[in-house]
């Protein structure tokens, strides 16, 4: 058995990005999901949509090459690409709710086996940070989640039922954690790929929900 390793955030986001299909319009959430844009595959064209109304933007701007009027959803300066378009906020969310976004990738505090996820409020803190998450969750064709498998205290975040207030019910299609890649099926979490050195039993031990382990379980795919 290979040495047991937890996946790095870039490898996790690479793996989700490998699922993007040619021509997809992709919305990447703030934080870890933006790492998906570091994975490129010249055989496909991906169109980036950011909630602040920019469609078809390019990589992060290098120092000295920033345009003060052009930022992504995280407020980071990005570069223009040929064909880029800008619209106002209501039009941007018209695209989101109207079903134009093929996939949105978000971070989460918790994901449950029925596809619910929670990423906007922790009851011990007053208020919440929704941003565009509820609109994206309700409107995008697919929701992918990238998050660590457990909290810093070791509690699992892959649950039978979310304990925190949810962002949307039943929408998550795919989950990547530092332990593997999971599909959310009508029967629950299906482990598709495991992190190197981790057996399905060991991943199950870190998971509250019952995992479906397919016969063709694979080792995690890294960028080549």
């Amino acid at each position: 058995m290979a040495e047991k390793v937890k996946l790095e955030r870039q490898a996790m986001c690479d793996r989700l990005a490998m699922e993007f299909q040619d021509g997809w319009i992709v919305n990447l959430g703030v934080g870890m999901p933006t790492l998906c844009s570091n994975y490129s595959d010249s055989s496909r064209e991906i169109i980036n949509h950011a909630e602040n109304g920019v469609i078809g933007y390019g990589p992060l701007a290098k120092e000295g090459e920033e345009d003060r009027h052009l930022v992504n959803a995280g407020g980071q300066k990005v570069t223009p690409l040929p064909g880029m378009a800008c619209v106002h906020h209501a039009d941007s969310f018209m695209m989101i709710r109207g079903g134009m976004i093929d996939v949105t990738v978000m971070g989460a505090y918790e994901v449950s086996e029925n596809g619910d996820f929670a990423n906007w409020r922790i009851p011990s803190r007053k208020g919440g940070g929704i941003g565009g998450a509820m609109d994206l969750a309700a409107g995008a064709k697919r929701v992918f989640i990238a998050m660590e498998h457990t909290t810093r205290d070791g509690a699992t975040k892959v649950l039978k039922k979310c304990t925190l207030p949810i962002t949307a019910p039943g929408v998550v299609k795919m989950l990547v954690t530092d332990l593997g890649l999971f599909e959310i099926t009508p029967q629950g979490f299906k482990l598709l790929e495991h992190a190197p050195g981790w057996s399905p039993e060991e991943i199950q031990e870190q998971t509250e929900a019952k995992l479906i382990i397919p016969d063709d379980l694979k080792e995690f795919r890294f960028r080549s």
């Binding site: 209501a90 709710r97 929704i130 565009g132 207030p165 949307a168 019910p169």
Partner: peptide, 30 residues
């Protein structure tokens, strides 16, 4: 606290003289 797309559409609605709108955003949440 208002979801961002709902915030944008509520503003658009006010500008457009429309009495309200129905959205799937936030259904099933607090």
């Amino acid at each position: 606290l208002v979801p961002q797309g709902t915030l944008a559409e509520r503003l658009r609605c006010a500008a457009a003289g429309i009495g309200g709108f129905y959205t799937p955003t936030s259904v099933g949440t607090e």
